[in-house]
Nucleic acid binder design. Sequence first.
DNA 1: CGGATACTTGAGGGTTGTCAAAATATGTGG
DNA 2: CCACATATTTTGACAACCCTCAAGTATCCG
Lengths: 247, 247
Amino acid sequence: MQLTTTHPLATLVARLSRDMPISDEAQRAIMALPVSVQALEPNTDLIHPGDRSASCCFVLSGWMGRFKLLQKGERQFLAFHIAGDIPDLQSLHLPTADLGIGAFTQVTVALIPHGALHDLMVHYPDVTAALWREVLVTASITNEWMIGLGRRSGPRRLAHLFCELYVRQKAAGLVKEEGRCPLPITQTVMADALGLTPVHVNRILRDLRAEKMIQHRQRTLTILDWGRLKVFAEFDAHYLHVEPQLM
Amino acid sequence: MQLTTTHPLATLVARLSRDMPISDEAQRAIMALPVSVQALEPNTDLIHPGDRSASCCFVLSGWMGRFKLLQKGERQFLAFHIAGDIPDLQSLHLPTADLGIGAFTQVTVALIPHGALHDLMVHYPDVTAALWREVLVTASITNEWMIGLGRRSGPRRLAHLFCELYVRQKAAGLVKEEGRCPLPITQTVMADALGLTPVHVNRILRDLRAEKMIQHRQRTLTILDWGRLKVFAEFDAHYLHVEPQLM
DNA sequence: CGGATACTTGAGGGTTGTCAAAATATGTGG
DNA sequence: CCACATATTTTGACAACCCTCAAGTATCCG
C-alpha cells in the first residue's frame, strides 16, 4: 500500500483536503504534528471500552472496527474503518471511550496526541472545520447503519453493507480492479455488524451468490451486478458524502 | 414549564455549563446571541430530509424526534429530543440535513443563526468544547440505540428506552414526581424508534405492565419497579454522561 | 354526537435464531 | 511439505420471535 511508504501525515493532509481546501500554512502545521506510528496484529484491540486515551488514531492501512460488548458476550459493531479514517476523533472531547476499537487485519495507525490536535484546531479554523466534518460524516454512516438495523431485512442489510464498503474503498483509492475490493472480515463479524447470527449471514450470502449479485472469496468481494445490488439494497450513497461520480 | 418563562438563552447557558464550567464572559456572549423563538404544532416537521438550514435549533419545551424515511414509507427514529437538547448542531458543519426533525407535542424552539454560533465558537474555546460535547453525547445516545436495535430483543429494547427517557428527563429537571415522567409518544412512534411494528410494541407493553414493571397512561410513564426494569433492560446509564447520582 | 386516531386482541405465516454436525479453509510445528 | 489443531464456512431440523392482516374497542376532539 503506497500509504505506508509516504509520510504518514501527508496522507492525513490528503484526506482532510479531500472535501474542502486547506491553506498551505495549515497543511504545513499538520505535517509538523508529533506522531507515533504503531502496528497492530489481526484480532487485537487498540482501545478497550472504558479506556481513557490521550491521543487520536489515524488509520494508515488495514481494517478496523468500532464495537461494544454486552453482558452475555454479544458484540455489536458500529462502524468499520479503513485507511484514511480517524475512528476516535471524538476522544478529543469525550476522553473515556464507551466503544472499543479493534483490528481485523494487520493494521498501522498514526497516533496523534490530543494536545497537539487541540493547538492545531485553535490556530487553524479550516482544519477544525475539516475535522468536524470528518466526525459528522462518520456519524452519518453510523446513522445509516442504524436505519438498516431498524428497518431493513437481513438480505437488504448485507447488500447495503457491501455497497457501502465498495464505495468507501473506491473513494479511498483502495479499489484496484473495477468491481472488486478487499473484504477481510469473517461472516461472524458481518453478523455482529448487522445484528444477525453467523448462520443466517451465511445463508444470505449463499442467496446473494445464487442471485449472481456478489461473490466473496479469499477475503475479497466481487460485485457481479452493481445495478441490481444497488436497487435491491435501496442504496443511496449521499450519506457517505463522497464525490458524486462514485455513487 | 419554567423554561419558557425565563430568557431562552439563559436555559442554553444552564445546559452548556451543566457538565463543564463556562467563563462569565462567554456566558454573556451566549446571552447576546441573536435568536428567534418559534412554536411548532404537534406532528409537524421543523426540518425535512434534504433541507439546507442556516440556523441551529435549541429545544425550549416539548418533545421532538430525529428520523429518516425509506422508500416504502417506513420511518426510523434515531433520537428523541427534549427541552435543553440541540438536535441539529451538526448542521453547522454539514448544512444539508439527511435527517428530518419533527415535533410530537407542542414545541417551542430557539433558532440561532449559524454565523452567530460560528463567531461565538471562534472567540470562546470553552463554548466550543461544550458544544462539541453536546454533539458527542447525542452521538453516544444514538450509539446505544444502535446496540439495542442490533443485539437486544424487543422487550429489552423497549425497557431500555424507558430507562433512558426517564433518566434524561430527570437530568433535565422534567421529573416532578419520583418514578413518573412524561411520555407523549404513540406506540407507533415507539415502534419506529425500536425497529418493531406497532402491534408488537403493544404486546410488549402489555407484558411489561403484567410484570408490574411499568405503566403508560395519559401520556405519562410510571416506573413501578426501577430496579427490576433496569436489570431486565441491562441498562447502564454511563452512555448518557449525566451526573452519577441519577443513574 | 360523529369521525378520526390510537390502542387492543386474535390467527396464522415468514424471517431469523438455536442447536448440532459436517466440510472446508487456515495456520503451526515437526 | 506433511500432519495436526484450530477457525471458518456450510447445511439441516426445529423453535421462537416478530410481522401481517384483520377486526374490534377505547379515546380524543371538533
